[in-house]
């Protein structure tokens, strides 16, 4: 861990410290509960996007059914609470159900990768949506399930928006740390190997299917955690949360920010939540805009905003460094590593 931190340069460390300080002190310099709530939303959607990014970015498997998994954990929490279970039990059951559903998703969809994976996860996600919508005796259909009250760990009631914000922040930081360690672990390297060269990895003796399966479980865990935070935030869950639009929204977070980067999904989540909040304030056409942004990003900035601006930054930095000795400066081929 120490040498991991030492490996990152000082500028980056300072940036991380500044962002962290800003996040921790946010409730003090932001006036109004409204904005603190937007902050909480960004944080748990970022956890969701980080979870999806494990598959989209690091495993090269695009899932269009993640809202189903997000929703099933949320439903499990709400349903358990409705049955009269305590918060701890409800959360535990929801985590288990979320990860177990992801396991089922993975077993079915990992029969193929690429387009087949998209299709099967999409179909499975829609089936979960259909279940939430029609299985009225459990989910109450379109009416959804209300959730009364939020837990109060260590005596801090999360009903207070500021406390809820801090709870989300803690979960968010833990999630980021987990993904950070995961990506730099040998397992993370193996996962990226299966993304880039599945056949070679297979020939080297790696069990490609198993590696992808574990990656799915990790992704499912983060998704379930964010789903639970979501249901406590809104105090309500309805089939809308599981719709294809929701899966697309989180995929947009990952793709717009930059799949396969740690920062990308966080930036993407911020972007999508802020645009959605601002836009839905004065027009109803969020879905139209969502679709338009999707098309625009895929065609214009396919690599995502974070890698795109990093590339731009390097380009500018190199140009500036190269100006004194522009004649000798050789164009480097390392600029675009795949």
């Amino acid at each position: 861990m120490i040498d991991l931190i030492a490996g990152t340069n000082r500028l980056r460390l300072i940036a991380i410290a500044v962002v962290l300080a800003a996040l921790v002190t946010l409730p003090f310099w932001v006036s109004g509960i409204y904005y603190i709530n937007v902050g909480s939303q960004i944080l748990f959607f970022a956890v969701f996007a980080l979870g999806l990014n494990i598959l989209v970015g690091y495993a090269g498997l695009v899932s269009l059914g993640h809202a189903g998994l997000f929703g099933i954990s949320a439903y499990a929490t709400a349903y358990m609470l409705q049955l009269g279970a305590g918060h701890t039990t409800a959360i535990m059951v929801a985590l288990v159900i979320g990860v177990a559903s992801m396991a089922v998703f993975a077993v079915l969809s990992l029969r193929s990768s690429g387009i087949g994976f998209i299709m099967i996860t999409l179909a499975l996600g829609q089936i979960l949506w259909g279940l939430a919508y029609r299985w009225i005796s459990v989910t109450d259909g379109d009416n959804g399930i209300p959730v009364r009250g939020r837990p109060a760990p260590f005596g801090y009631s999360l009903t207070d928006p500021v406390n809820f914000y801090y709870a989300s922040l803690i979960v968010f930081i833990v999630a980021v740390a987990m993904v950070f360690i995961f990506v730099r672990s040998p397992f993370g390297a193996a996962l990226m190997g299966t993304r880039d060269q599945p056949r070679r990895m297979n020939a080297l003796g790696y069990h490609v299917w198993m590696i992808r399966f574990y990656a799915c479980l990790f992704s499912g865990l983060l998704t379930a955690v964010s789903g639970i935070l979501f249901v406590y935030y809104t105090n309500f869950i309805s089939p809308q949360t599981l719709a294809l639009t929701a899966s697309a929204e989180v995929l947009l977070m990952v793709i717009s920010g930059g799949p396969g980067t740690l920062l990308g999904p966080i930036v993407g989540a911020t972007l999508v939540v802020v645009i959605k909040t601002v836009v839905s304030g004065f027009i109803e056409r969020w879905n139209f805009l969502l679709g338009a942004i999707f098309v625009a990003i895929v065609i214009l900035v396919p690599e995502g905003i974070v890698p795109g601006s990093v590339r731009l930054w390097h380009l500018i930095a190199r140009k500036r460094a190269a100006t004194p000795a522009a004649a000798e400066a050789e164009p480097t081929a390392t600029e675009r590593t795949p």
């Binding site: 695009v62 269009l64 690429g114 387009i115 998209i118 639009t245 697309a248 995929l251 793709i255 056409r285 879905n287 139209f288 969502l290 679709g291 338009a292 942004i293 999707f294 098309v295 895929v298 065609i299 396919p302």
Partner: peptide
Amino acid sequence: LAQVLVTLGISFMAAD
């Protein structure tokens, strides 16, 4: 992959 995502984006625009 990009083509699928474009068709997804268009489907939302069409629905709206």
